[in-house]
Amino acid sequence: MAYVTTLFARKMVAAAGTGIDQRATLERAGIDPDAPWDPKVMIPATTYYEMLEAMAEEIDVTELPVHVGASMRCDDYGALGLAWKAAPFLKASCLRIERYARVWTGVVTYELREEPRGILFILHREGARRLGLRLSNEATLASAVSLSRQVCPVPFSPIEVLIQHKGPRSKAYHEAWFGCPVHFEADLDAVLISHEAMERPNILGDEGISRYLMSDLDTELTRIKTPPTVVGEARNAIAQALSEGTPRVADIAKGLGMSARSFHRRLSEHGLSFQSLTEETRRELAEGLLRDEQYSLAEVAFLIGFSEQSSFTRAFKRWLGTTPASYRKAELINASSPAQIKH
């Protein structure tokens, strides 16, 4: 199950301004508008994407991800942001993001790749290329450039920006902000940075502080490698109960040997709600069952708690941006294709 920090969601909503009902938008995503901005509170990635897609129905979101990326500050990322600032040079900063990104998100990984013209800082994010994911990718790439500008002692711009999805009618705003060519419909989501910029000393580079922060981040990584026991147990209980319809929180809590109130509190400690956990469990089960041809679409719908196949189809399209039938067809084609070497 993939999660992202609510910090990103709050930044997106704030950047949208008065064009949307900010309070209602946050509440629909399961975020308390009145609560402090706590980056450690997470929401499911699918919920985040749905929120962005709902915003896109109300306002023009062409420039929104760049605005959000530009607004990100090193301090927003806690110890990870401080480790970025304290690294001796930009390449070391990027290497720390490559290593410790899981502290902040379970949906994105990063890779540094040497090229003749420079070094690619590559963003990897799995999943259907739905609008919410595309907007999130653009914001993430813009964030990388914004953070680079904050530590670079001279004006910084990458050599070029690569984005896999189709671009807007005009990319003038993107290129003006990034300060370089932006290529949509590319093979990668990445920022190409020159060797010179990568080796340039950071303004606040401090090796002593850097070692301390990396030790702290290593500890954080250790903590998140194993999913919280209560979350894993709850997910299993929900999965087993789904064939009988939508599970009731009281029944799941009782099966785990705790009160509903204690159960809610334990989930909230991990930035989760019972509703979001049930939704994510349904989606994961649906994806797995659809990859097995022995189950009809009606059977898959029943096994994950839907009384009607039409309701399942609508939910699945909301989750992944495609229908169950189309998803199954694509997965079966991929499974039958010869394995390819990744470069």
Results as ranks from 00 to 15, higher is better:
residue 53 E to K: 00
residue 248 R to L: 05
residue 277 L to F: 11
residue 11 K to Q: 07
residue 172 A to Y: 11
residue 52 L to V: 01
residue 242 L to T: 08
residue 79 A to K: 04
residue 95 L to F: 12
residue 255 G to I: 09
residue 278 T to R: 05
residue 131 L to K: 11
residue 150 Q to W: 10
residue 12 M to I: 02
residue 201 P to D: 07
residue 179 G to I: 03
residue 125 R to K: 07
residue 249 V to N: 09
residue 84 W to Q: 00
residue 196 E to V: 04
residue 336 S to D: 14
residue 262 S to L: 13
residue 54 A to D: 10
residue 168 P to M: 06
residue 180 C to Q: 12
residue 242 L to D: 06
residue 270 H to K: 02
residue 32 D to W: 07
residue 73 R to M: 04
residue 123 L to E: 02
residue 48 Y to Q: 00
residue 270 H to R: 01
residue 81 G to R: 13
residue 282 R to Q: 07
residue 16 A to S: 15
residue 215 S to K: 00
residue 177 W to H: 15
residue 313 T to N: 13
residue 225 K to N: 01
residue 179 G to M: 05
residue 257 G to E: 14
residue 297 L to T: 06
residue 307 S to A: 05
residue 236 N to L: 03
residue 129 R to H: 04
residue 127 G to T: 07
residue 257 G to I: 08
residue 280 E to D: 06
residue 122 I to Q: 12
residue 304 I to T: 09
residue 176 A to H: 15
residue 24 A to M: 01
residue 147 L to M: 05
residue 134 R to S: 01
residue 127 G to W: 15
residue 341 I to T: 12
residue 283 R to D: 05
residue 221 L to T: 04
residue 13 V to P: 02
residue 70 A to M: 08
residue 226 T to S: 12
residue 24 A to N: 03
residue 220 E to C: 12
residue 140 T to V: 06
residue 279 E to N: 04
residue 309 Q to N: 14
residue 331 E to W: 07
residue 201 P to H: 08
residue 312 F to N: 03
residue 202 N to K: 10
residue 125 R to W: 02
residue 93 S to K: 10
residue 262 S to I: 04
residue 23 R to I: 02
residue 21 D to L: 02
residue 8 F to K: 01
residue 135 L to Q: 00
residue 121 F to C: 02
residue 176 A to N: 11
residue 329 K to I: 01
residue 317 K to Q: 08
residue 6 T to M: 10
residue 181 P to E: 07
